[in-house]
């Protein structure tokens, strides 16, 4: 058989790349209804911190963001950081329940990542223009600044938690996070009675609040 005349011969060679590109553009520009429904499910799963949903979103979107960051002077670690932060923004939005899927998850994550990366570059005094990709973007400025505020608060709580020390940290987590009652807690932590545990919990909470609000008020004053 004459190989040159056989179109399958070329197809076999070029199919993998071409195929990838076609499917890639399809997701971006055509939004079939079933894809939309699938994405809605993913968003719900993300809000509930479901592993499966996170995995799917991660797998489908990481590479695009990785390209974006690395092609714009970022490292492998930057790519991971920015992508995960974008996922947190999506997670926050999903949890708030106001996320209407007026755009693709991919578009949303790309827009947020781009915004976050630009901000980080500016913060490091590297005013570089991001190379324009083929990706379309949506307006995410409000989401990103809301996220920044929440990220700051996360940092303040993390700092406060780290500094109250044990047994306060575990005690407060047991009560407020794992919702154990005071009886269970006094047994687990070896207090002679629930009242003692209550006393201790109160002191710990006051300390945590003090640490948290010290930063919170400072942060708001500065901000």
């Amino acid at each position: 058989m004459d190989k040159k005349g056989n179109p399958d011969f070329f197809k076999n060679i070029f199919y993998p790349t071409l195929g990838y590109q076609i499917s890639y553009f399809c997701i971006n520009y055509n939004t079939p209804v079933n894809t939309n429904l699938k994405e809605q499910e993913l968003i719900k799963g993300l809000a509930l911190n479901e592993k499966g949903a996170i995995e799917t979103i991660y797998k489908d979107n990481f590479t695009v963001i990785q390209h974006l960051i690395i092609n714009n002077n970022g490292s492998e670690d930057d790519a991971k950081d920015i992508f995960q932060e974008a996922l947190i923004v999506l997670y926050e939005k999903a949890k708030s329940g106001v996320f209407e899927l007026n755009c693709q998850i991919k578009t949303y994550l790309y827009s947020v990542s781009k915004r976050l990366w630009l901000k980080r570059l500016q913060k490091n005094n590297r005013f570089e223009l991001l190379a324009n990709g083929v990706e379309e973007t949506v307006h995410v400025e409000e989401d990103v600044s809301l996220h920044e505020k929440r990220d700051d608060e996360f940092g303040m709580m993390e700092h406060a938690m780290m500094n109250i020390g044990e047994p306060c940290k575990s005690l407060l987590e047991a009560y407020y996070i794992y919702k154990q009652n005071m009886q269970e807690i006094s047994e687990a932590f070896g207090y002679t009675n629930a009242d003692n545990a209550k006393n201790q919990k109160y002191k710990c909470l006051m300390r945590l609040k003090k640490l948290f609000f010290a930063q919170y008020k400072n942060g708001n004053k500065n901000g």
Binding site: I88, F154, Y176, I177, F212
Partner: peptide
């Protein structure tokens, strides 16, 4: 704040 911190 505490609950959100924990979920995040």
């Amino acid at each position: 704040q505490m609950e959100r911190f924990n979920e995040d």
